[in-house]
Structures are given as structure tokens and as C-alpha cells.
Design a binder for these strands. Structure first.
Lengths: 337, 337
DNA sequence: ATGAAAGCGCTAACAG
DNA sequence: CTGTTAGCGCTTTCAT
């Protein structure tokens, strides 16, 4: 089996607590003792059992990231990275769990993660059709929890989608555009969809202009729906001179169809998308003007809030909104430039 | 604090072992006793401390997924999902750890994850410029380990990239193409780059045709390099009639530039890419013909191997190769169709 | 059918 | 400076 503290104790001829103290650099010991113990420990390849430590410390030193099974593909990366990095600073480890959404509706079903104590807190990335039952389960769990990108009234960190959409729209307005459309194939249940749309509409209203929203229906957009939406933007008699899109997906689809029809980007049409910085960079090798969705920062801030709640579980913490930044590239320009 | 077993024992008037047995459905007890204990446990909201259980069972019931910080963006999703799902079947939890590659070269530095015992095994997703030191560290750790997508001679599960590339190329050959190019911007250090190139070259050689490789240099391809590569495919005097690309990135970049130049897809040019199924679906809203990189299946198989090694750590297990499938969509057709 | 005792690997309090 | 004792929350003999 694996080497334990007591084996190191035996090998070095010292008692268990002495060895423990030395390996944790606590207390004062003569250099000779220290050196011997450390040497033996190294020789034996001793590694402390983190669980035994945790059980004594009354701390799991572990946080669980709870994710839906139905999120958009590729959404997780930035979030996992941000959470992991912040946790690593405090030597807290990261457990990942996905809940099977389908099963959550069954009355009796409680996912294993919530049946057992394994971590000090729950970080919840669950923003899309949150089952009622799930919220209930989490509240009953009584672990400190922090929600990410969700409409909670406390203990939540979210991307400021309204601000993002406003920033994108105002960038186009600032360039002199007036006919600006908004294109989105986001599922209507996703928390960000109404917010981005609203930010766009607000900015247009403030400028005294009318909004033109081309959004997919309630459900997932079919290929035909998408083609129709692309056409309606590109072939409209009073074609918009600029478009804000929900994500790089819509932007790329649109830009490709613009190329097929000879509509030049950005001379004939400016395009700006929301996108997290990584994704924006790997698409189609074009320099897409974007408003970054600060997933990494959001995840870091949420994890920070989590750690604060673990340290002091009592107070509810107010919602934090993380702003995104405008990243001007080659797909936007003044109209008719 | 949280509710412990002994609190349930006190509340129900039975002893600790009795309560433990009942909650774990072991032993035989009169219905009355059982019911009372279960009721009290529920009332108090008792949740077993998984760590205390683990420490007794001499099993962490946890596997660590070790990832590099320098992988391609969006690479992780399928892998994490596959690992998680397979682990969930056995009620094993998933810990995620990213090692800071930069620091690994420092002689003294050992990442915390490897300093401490926290899990039953190491699943390693580390395929790109693997630091020598890291391999050493892992071997010294003496936990069962399984590598994913890496060139190890045992205890490794990988995508069969040679087969994938051959399948893609043979699809085009089968359609009647003869001038088939290969386009790749993959970093040369990535394990899959030479393999995909080789699979393509093998298939071409077998067909008695000459290979045309357009690959980026040793380092990360600059935008200029990429443009030049796209041009060389599209503007060549003896332009290829079909292209195999390393990933959907290259394919999308190429298809977009084809649209700008009026080169029709697939009439004038067929395009087939390697891509995991998810990614392929979210790009540019075009129906890209692909060979799927079976990340999910690979991750499942690797996790399965991991669990087998945990159960019986002795034997080294032979490398497994996971084949991918051809997914014919709209971007390939016979030449001049 | 139930409880007492021991112990998993470790740390903290207190002696000496 | 170092060792003894106790105990974290739980399970597993082994008595009764």
C-alpha cells in the first residue's frame, strides 16, 4: 500500500507528531532531526493523505463545480479555467459534476453529488432551463453556493449582458450607422438572450432609432430558419448597414453568406459579435470585431465570492456584474467606407 | 456545523454502528428500527461525509484529470464530458487539475496535485510539448495512470489519427479526385499533426498520386502564413479539386476565401475536415463533411482503462486506438460535379 | 438485534 | 525539543 506518516515515523525513529510537525514546517526542531525526517520521507516517497488532513481540518479543501448537461458546446472551457486558477491560488481543488437534467424531474431522484458531503461549496453554472427541483435540492443542501450567469438575487456573479449589448451597439452608432439589425439564434430559454436583445434595443431607443431584431423562434433554430434570417438581413430592400450578432456563430454564418452574395465586409456591412476572447480567435481566420464575454473573469470573480462565503458563510453576498470590453477588429467601419 | 452520524444515533436512540449499517442498507434490522433511523436522518438532513468513508475504504473514489494549460481552446469539452460520464457510472468523482507548464521546468517545483494524495488515479490529457520533467513526476507518483492522446507505449488511449486521415483521403479518392491537397496550421509539436499528415500521404501513395502538403511552419502560423496557404490552395495554376484540412478552422477559413473568389464548394472544390462532432456543428452554419475525432469515446475508453487499472494496478494495459467515422455532408462531391 | 471497541491517517493540546 | 493522548467521522469485527 501507500506510505503513511507512521511508516516515516518508524523509519526515522521519531514519533508520529514530530514527523507530522516537521513535514508541515511547524514547531522548532534541531536541524539534524529535521533533515533526517525529511530525508526518510523523501526516500520512502511519502505523500500526505489529503483526505485525512481534510477530515482533521474540518475542511474539504475542495469546491464542486455543478454544470448542466445541456449547455452550449464549448461554453465550459473559460469557466473551468477561471475557476481552477482562482482555486489553485488557495490550494483548493476542483471537483466537476454534471447533473443529468432529464432525471432531475423524477421526484425521488437526488444526484449523488448532493447526497454526500465532498466539498466546501457549490459553484453553479446552470443558466438555461433550470429545473425547479434543482434549486430546491441545492437550497436543501445547505452548503455555501454561488451561481454563475444566472438570475439570482444574491450570491451570484454574472456577465453584464445588457452593458455588453449596449457597448456593441454604441460602437456601431458611433461609426455613424443608423440601420442596425440584431441577429440571434440563441435558445429563448437562455438567460442571456433577452438581456442582449434588451441592451441593443435600449441603445437604439436612446439614439432615437428603431430596432430590427431577427431572432430564432422559441426553440432551437432549424437550418431553414437560419437561412431565412441571413437572407432577411442581406436581401432586405432597406438592408441594414450594420449587424450585432448574439455570438460568433451567427457572425460567421452571416459573413460567409455575404461573401457568396458579394456583399463586402465591412464596406457594405459592418458586423460585431459577442464572444469570449478565445472563441473569437479561432473562427474562420477573420479578424472579427467583438465585444468580449468575460467568462474567465466572471468565473474568477464567482470563485472568489465562493471562497469568501466558505470563510464566512453567514452573509448573503450581492450580485456582481462583470463588464466586457470592446475589441475592434476588421469587420466594422463607418457606413459606406 | 454539519450533521454527523453520531447526531443521528443520539436522535434515534440507537448506537452509531447500528445507524451506519441501516443507512448503508447492510445487516438486518426490524422494520421499526430502520424506519425510525431513516426518519431521523432525513429530518436532520444527514449527509454522510464522503471523506470519512473514503478514508476507511482505503479508496478516494476520485480520479484526477490532469490537463495542460496550453491545449488548444475548446479541446477539453468532449474529454471532460466523456471522463465524467464514465466515472459517474461507478460513482467516482472527478477532480480537474491544470499544471502550469511554464513552472514545470523549475527543478524544485512540484505541483500541489502531485505532492498530495487525493485520488485513486491520474488521467493525463497532455499531448503537446510534454515537459520531460512532468513524465518523471508522474512516474514517481506511483498512482495508476492512463494517458490520453499521447505517444505512450502502454496505458494509453488515443484517437487513431492515421486511420482518420486515411478515411478522409479515401473518401475523396472514391469520389474520383486526383489532385488532393492537405492543409494544416496545427502546431508541429502536437502529437496529431504528423499522424494526420502521414495518413493522408499513405492514402495518396497507395493510390499512386503525389501528396501536396500545405502546412504552417514549426511555430504557430501567423495570419500572413495562413493567407498565403489559403492562396496557394485556391490560386495554384493546377488547383487541387479537393482538400483535406487538419481541423474545421482551416476548412472554414478556406471555404470563406473560396466564396470571396467565386470558387464554388463543392462544385469547384471539395473540402473535408477532421473535427469532433460538436465543433463541426457550430461553425458557420454550413454542412461540413467531416471525419469525426472521437474525443468523447476516447475519453470514455481511457476512463474505463483507468478504472480497470485502479481495480488491478499490476498489469500495464496495451494502447487502444479509437477510430473515427466519416460524416458526409455538403462540402464534398465528385470533381466538377 | 444491537452495542462496544478498534482503527483508517492525520493533527492539536498538552506534558515532560 | 519530543512523545503521549485524544479525536475528526466513519465502518468493521466481534461480543452479547
Amino acid at each position: 500500500m501507500t506510505i503513511t506518516l507512521s511508516q516515516v515515523a518508524k523509519a526515522s525513529g521519531y514519533s508520529l507528531p514530530t514527523v507530522s510537525q516537521i513535514l508541515n514546517s511547524k514547531g522548532r526542531f534541531p536541524k539534524q532531526t529535521r533533515d533526517l525526517v525529511l530525508k526518510k520521507a523523501r526516500e520512502l516517497g511519502y505523500r500526505p493523505n489529503a483526505l485525512a488532513q481534510a477530515i482533521r481540518h474540518q475542511r474539504f479543501d475542495c469546491v464542486t463545480l455543478l454544470m448542466s448537461t445541456q449547455n452550449r458546446p464549448y461554453y465550459h472551457t473559460g469557466i473551468i479555467d477561471g475557476v481552477h486558477d482562482r482555486l489553485a491560488q488557495d490550494n483548493v481543488s476542483l471537483e466537476i459534476a454534471r447533473l443529468p437534467d432529464e432525471k432531475l424531474t423524477d421526484e425521488g431522484f437526488v444526484p449523488r453529488i448532493l447526497q454526500v458531503l465532498r466539498s466546501d461549496g457549490l459553484l453553479i453554472e446552470y443558466n438555461h432551463r433550470i429545473p425547479e427541483r434543482m434549486i430546491e435540492l441545492i437550497e436543501n443542501h445547505h452548503l455555501p453556493s454561488v451561481w454563475m450567469n444566472s438570475k439570482q438575487s444574491a450570491n451570484c456573479v454574472r456577465v453584464d449582458d445588457i452593458q455588453l449589448a449596449r457597448t456593441a451597439t454604441e460602437h456601431l452608432l458611433g461609426l455613424g450607422h443608423q440601420r442596425i439589425a440584431y441577429l440571434s439564434f440563441a435558445p429563448s430559454s437562455h438567460y442571456s438572450r433577452p438581456e442582449r436583445e434588451q441592451g441593443y434595443c435600449n441603445a437604439m431607443a436612446d439614439a432615437g432609432l428603431s430596432a430590427v431584431v431577427r431572432a430564432a423562434g422559441q426553440r432551437v433554430a432549424s437550418p431553414e430558419d437560419r437561412e431565412a434570417a441571413y437572407r432577411s438581413v442581406l436581401e432586405d430592400a432597406a438592408r441594414p448597414t450594420a449587424v450585432v450578432t448574439y455570438s460568433a456563430n451567427e457572425a460567421c454564418g452571416l459573413i460567409y453568406r455575404a461573401a457568396l452574395k458579394g456583399v463586402r465586409i465591412p464596406e457594405d456591412l459592418s458586423v460585431i459579435a459577442f464572444e469570449d476572447s478565445v472563441r473569437g480567435k479561432v473562427t474562420m481566420d477573420i479578424a472579427l470585431t467583438m465585444v468580449t464575454v468575460p467568462l474567465l473573469e466572471m468565473a474568477r470573480a464567482a470563485t472568489d465570492m465562493m471562497l469568501r462565503r466558505i470563510a464566512d458563510p453567514l452573509p448573503s453576498l450581492p450580485v456582481e456584474r462583470i463588464p466586457g470590453e470592446l475589441n475592434i477588429q476588421a469587420t466594422t467601419a463607418p457606413p459606406g467606407a
